[in-house]
Design a protein around this nucleic acid. Structure first.
Length: 547
RNA sequence: UGUCCUAUGGUGUAAUGGUAACACAGCAGAUUUUGAUUCUGCUUUUCUAGGUUCGAAUCCUAGUAGGACAACCA
């Protein structure tokens, strides 16, 4: 019997509703606006919405909230769909708020007929000014009492394109003194002579969020409409619309959005980074976008696990980036084949190894995975090792090469450093070592004991490659707390390119999407910029390092 | 000088009136042909003040702190 995991507050609500027979089955939706790429915050919402339906046997619609033609594009639609599927979820129906434009128009007419909406000729400045402030009530204007017939005529003329942008709006008639600013006669339709990515030029009036979202939920009979905390004040208006339109009563619930240390999760600001070329596009591996983290090498499994681990609640949070890294390593450790790659090469010549001799050293691909198999690495007289695996004057607990000190070449032999060759500038250019033939990996009869084990690549067989090392995009922990321009907080060292590293020959066969652990260096994935002649790897995350 | 939401280790999240727990992070140690993985142990918690109750992290009141709200954005 598995011990029961406690429920988050949304699961509690759903279980309760199901238990009380309020619903037979539930319906949720994921409602992105196609004006940018999905990021980790959306992943939380996706996992929540799809996860709830999956867990309780309901369905989830993918609904594009495309009510603002000015910022929305088909390119975004395609990428959003791709991202959701990549994360591992399949929607019941692919829908668009714009599908409901005719119906939404009818809803507006219905409101006008009930005396609950009016056409206002005020400018947006005037409307804002009449609205009051959170501590002062707003006031009614002369348009508020327009007769129903006139409103009907004017609204129809708005729709027919008789008026220019900004000249008129349709407002719900609620209460200009309401304590909730959103209830002070909110604008529900505005004129925009703009081309819509789906409806083209059919419409020149478009509903506002508050007059589209709840109605769309209702049309689709969404039972639980889950959104982030900033929509809490909208709930009153959401319910007002449903009540006065007398339509299916979807219910809105709010959770706290995801915030992460050293990460910017604002679509608007991410767009700015892209537009100003401060990153290399939406899928730059430093971006918190799903396309970015995918290219970086994060797996959907690790992201889903991350979303599971961060939980769901209503208080503001700032999740440690290290939790995401932990989830990445946890999964990558299980699925990644091990490979050896030398980043900062230093040549080792094994002076007692016969010139011209080669042998193949078997080495396991991944001891964490069953059936990962073995590969064979060529071993020869000349090898590349990591420059930092040699020290002339090592500290006490240094287990690697130093004058007279021994080390194990992983899956190879034990070698001893006899001499460091230096150039005129005093820099070490190569190491002369002796190997112990009886210390062959797996057949070690040498009786030697060494603590240090290092990776290596045969000079003759090494494959050159490029490595891209990524670090956090911002240097500031809480990017929500800053008051100056967020671009002041960019990490100048967020990308470091090593243009010539030496990889073991097996990596020449790497395919897009292959995840590797480069021994002692971290987890890497082949980047799509790679060409047949040029391998490029992105570092997904370093190995955990302790000392 | 308003309304609403929130307050549990460093960071998250549980405990649903009955012994405050789990994960991450941190620190120690064991194992290790990756200074990885794995394993073991440790450090650290209920915002404050009243009240209800045999008993409060939980319920009530007040305070304090943080967040949201004055787009023809979503």
């Amino acid at each position: 019997m598995a011990d029961e995991k406690s429920l988050n507050f949304l699961e509690e609500i759903v279980e309760n509703d199901l238990k009380e027979g309020k619903y037979k089955t539930i319906a949720t939706r994921f409602p992105p606006e196609p004006n940018g790429y999905l990021h980790l915050g959306h992943a939380k919402s996706i996992c929540l919405n799809f996860g709830l339906a999956l867990k309780y046997g309901g369905k989830t619609n993918l609904r594009f909230d495309d009510t603002n033609p000015v910022t929305e594009e088909t390119e975004y639609v395609e990428n959003i769909k791709n991202d959701v599927q990549w994360l591992g979820f399949q929607w019941a129906e692919e829908l668009y708020a714009s599908d409901y434009f005719p119906q939404l128009y009818e809803f507006a007419v219905r409101l006008i007929k009930k005396g609950l909406a009016y056409v206002d000729d005020s400018t947006s400045d005037e409307i804002a000014e009449q609205k009051g402030t959170p501590t002062q009530p707003g006031r009614n204007n002369i348009y508020r009492n327009r007769p129903i017939e006139e409103n009907l005529r004017l609204f129809a003329e708005m729709k027919d394109g008789k008026y220019p942008d900004g000249s008129k709006v349709l407002r719900a008639k609620i209460d200009m003194a309401h304590v909730n600013m959103l209830m002070r006669d909110p604008v529900i339709y505005r004129i925009k002579h703009a081309h819509h990515h789906r409806t083209g030029d059919t419409w020149c009036i478009y509903p506002m969020y508050d007059f589209a979202h709840g109605q769309s939920d209702s049309i689709e009979q969404i039972t639980h409409s889950i959104c982030t905390l900033e929509f809490v004040p909208h709930r009153e208006l959401y319910n007002w619309c449903i009540e006065n339109l007398e339509i299916y009563p979807s219910q809105q619930y709010e959770f706290a959005r995801l915030n992460m240390t050293y990460t910017m999760m604002s679509k608007r600001k991410l767009l700015q980074l892209v537009n100003e070329k401060l990153v290399n596009g939406w899928d730059d591996p430093r971006m918190p976008t799903l396309s970015g983290v995918r290219r970086r090498g994060f797996t959907p499994e690790s992201l889903r696990e991350f979303c599971e681990k961060i939980g769901v609640a209503k208080r503001d949070n700032l999740i440690d980036l290290s939790l995401l890294e932990f989830c990445a390593r946890e999964h990558l450790n299980k699925i990644s084949d091990r490979r050896m790659v030398v980043f900062d090469p230093l040549k080792v010549v094994i002076t007692n190894y016969p010139e011209g001799q080669e042998e193949m050293m078997p080495t396991e691909n991944n001891t964490e995975a069953e059936n990962a198999g073995v590969r064979h690495m060529p071993f020869g007289r000349e090898l590349w090792i990591e420059r930092e695996d040699y020290m002339e004057n090592p500290p006490k607990k240094y287990f690697r090469l130093a004058p007279g000190q021994m080390v194990r070449l992983k899956s190879g032999f034990i070698i001893r450093c006899d001499e460091a060759i230096k150039n005129a500038a005093g820099e070490v250019t190569e190491l002369h070592c002796t190997y112990f033939p009886e210390s062959r990996s797996g057949h070690d009869t040498s009786g030697l004991h060494v603590k240090g084990v290092i990776h290596w690549v045969s000079v003759k067989h090494a494959v050159p490659a490029e490595i891209r090392l990524y670090d956090k995009l911002f240097v500031t922990e809480d990017m929500n707390a800053i008051e100056d321009d967020f671009k002041n907080h960019l990490n100048p060292d967020s990308l470091k390119v090593l243009s010539k590293v030496y990889a073991e020959p097996e990596l020449a066969n790497a395919k897009l999407g292959d995840h590797f652990q480069f021994l002692r260096m971290g987890y890497f994935v082949l980047d799509p910029d790679s060409t047949p002649g040029k391998l490029i790897f992105n570092r997904t995350v370093t190995l955990r390092e302790s000392k």
